[in-house]
């Protein structure tokens, strides 16, 4: 076994592409990834965002050596992804995980522990610990086929954690979890970060990404359209403000000459969206014209705005899925 170099970045991928061949004659192709670069440094929490079919799961499957890239290279801790021993450092939670349903939760996590190189009392203790952490201690003796979706998700998370990984790769970790479970998942990820664990995860829940990530990438149609630290990306964003105005008609507001993102008349009220830079001018104008400002609030999560802008800029007819060629 080659030594795992300690200063090599946990994840490093260059020019990854994946073209799936489909159809009976394998003559149709779906381009799931096109030239993706990804670098995740030690101790980072890195988020992958993107619409359905953007290539998030494909990226993760390449990193876990489940599918082979059609082009480009991917390394974990400086080793090629097909190097089995490196995965000793990695915990993986797939999308819609399916553990062996004839095993109990405890049996499955124990099996996962054996595969991660643990054994004996240490394994026993660790299994109890991780099952406790995902609150599955009560149901650990039940066969997995008797579990609900969220319970399966929890056991699958436990099996990812059992080997004390230094890198966690999580594909939609909060899917299927109840509100409390989502909160616990967030706390778990933060606790892992405090231990120095690196985390790569993808999610559709923007507040989660915003709350957890140091850096993120937005994928659309298999290409990376945004990348950077959350701070950078969000502050580069022009936020919009939502305002509800009374005592003025829609055309009266429009005559104020302040550029509006959108304007809509509701009975007796006007609903406005304006960029943050213009919001003070609009406020002054409305009040000066005798209007009453009922409510002012940031229009969306700024990350959500970023996401929407990225989709719009990608210039694709639909944001869903990769390019399909027949």
């Amino acid at each position: 076994m080659q030594p795992v170099s300690p200063d090599a970045p946990p994840i490093q991928a260059q020019g990854l592409s994946k073209t799936y061949k489909v159809g009976f004659w394998l003559n149709r192709t779906v381009r799931a990834l096109q030239g993706l670069d990804l670098q995740v440094g030690a101790g980072q929490i890195y988020g992958l965002l993107g619409p359905n079919g953007a290539g998030k799961s494909t990226t993760i499957k390449i990193l876990m050596n489940l599918v082979r890239p059609s082009g480009g290279t991917a390394r974990l801790y400086g080793q090629p992804v097909d190097h089995a021993a490196t995965r000793r450092l990695v915990g993986f939670l797939p999308e819609n995980p399916s553990p062996y349903d004839y095993l109990t939760g405890r049996e499955f996590v124990t099996l996962a522990g054996h595969l991660s190189g643990l054994s004996g009392h240490d394994l026993d203790r660790r299994v109890t610990e991780v099952l406790g952490a995902v609150e599955m201690a009560g149901a650990e003796k039940l066969q997995i086929r008797r579990y609900s979706k969220g319970m399966v998700q929890r056991v699958a998370l436990a099996q990812a954690l059992v080997g004390r990984p230094k890198l966690l790769i999580l594909d939609e970790p909060t899917s299927g979890l109840d509100p409390l479970g989502r909160r616990q998942m967030r706390d778990l990820i933060l606790a892992e970060r405090d231990k120095g664990t690196t985390v790569l995860f993808c999610s559709h829940i923007i507040p989660d990404v915003e709350a957890l990530c140091d850096r993120l990438a937005v994928l659309v149609g298999g290409r990376r359209v945004r990348e950077g630290s959350v701070q950078e990306l969000v502050s580069a964003q022009v936020p919009t403000v939502e305002m509800v105005v009374e005592n003025l008609k829609l055309d009266q507001v429009q005559q104020l000459g302040v550029p509006l993102e959108s304007a809509q008349a509701l009975d007796g009220r006007v609903l406005l969206q304006v960029s943050d830079t213009n919001s003070q001018r609009l406020l002054g104008g409305v009040l000066g014209a005798g209007g009453r400002v009922n409510r002012v609030q940031p229009a969306r999560f700024s990350l959500e705005q970023l996401f929407m802008d990225a989709l719009k800029e990608s210039g694709r007819a639909t944001s869903v899925g990769g390019e399909i060629n027949t």
Binding site: A84, P97, P99, Q159
Partner: peptide, 17 residues
């Protein structure tokens, strides 16, 4: 088919093993 294999071959074992 059932994707149970994802949770096995993502551990530090080779596919051959």
């Amino acid at each position: 088919e059932r994707r149970t294999i994802f949770l096995m071959v993502s551990k530090p074992v080779s596919r051959t093993q």
